[in-house]
């Protein structure tokens, strides 16, 4: 997912984790499901909440907030799972609330600033979007676009479990 060199319009799904808004490329999204307690797994990274049955496939469910280094999400009525495809593998991300589907312009994406934090590598870029529900004063908001490839579970998971 290159962040800057592409000026095409693309669609992103936005969602919140705590106070912050995030976005992922719409093309990676398979479905959005209601939260359902997954089957926990032994000896895996703490952010892997377990596995769930997605139409016959065993799909891991990831606490995205923890994965990104934030406080773990608290489960509430609007918690849901974004099922995405990363390099042909499926994963479910627990998010606090799905917000919207927004069209953005590739050229408007700013590269993530080189901050001294591990999680920066999972952020593909920043983009400003207008809030649909025009809550007057705060009409624009910043969305952190996630780099799904960096969120892949197979390799990273092994390192952490080890």
């Amino acid at each position: 997912m290159s962040a800057t060199d592409n000026s095409d319009e693309r669609k992103i799904v936005t969602f919140t984790l705590g106070e912050q808004m995030f976005g992922i490329d719409m093309r990676a999204l398979i479905e959005i499901r209601e939260w359902e307690e997954p089957t926990p797994l032994p000896s895996v990274a703490s952010y892997i909440k377990g596995v769930t049955n997605l139409r016959g496939s065993v799909v891991p469910v990831v606490g995205l907030a923890e994965r990104l280094g934030w406080e773990p999400s608290r489960i509430h009525s609007r918690s849901c799972i974004l099922v995405v495809s990363i390099g042909g593998r499926q994963a479910g991300f627990l998010v606090d609330e799905v917000a919207d589907i927004v069209a953005i312009n590739g050229g408007d994406i700013q590269p993530a600033p080189e901050v001294e934090m591990v999680e920066a590598s999972m952020i593909a870029g920043l983009v400003k979007i207008e809030r649909r529900a025009a809550e007057a004063e705060d009409a624009e908001t910043m969305v952190l676009l996630l780099d799904l490839d960096a969120l892949g579970l197979t390799r990273v998971g092994l390192d952490i479990a080890a």
Binding site: T39, L41, V51, N53, S57, V58, P60, L153, R155, G157
Partner: peptide, 24 residues
């Protein structure tokens, strides 16, 4: 169902299966 299809192998587990009630 292999775990490493979507995740990675986990020591002590040979995989997973979907039981009659749809749970894993």
């Amino acid at each position: 169902k292999s775990l490493e299809d979507n995740l990675h192998p986990i020591r002590g587990l040979g995989g997973a299966t979907i039981l009659g009630d749809g749970t894993i």
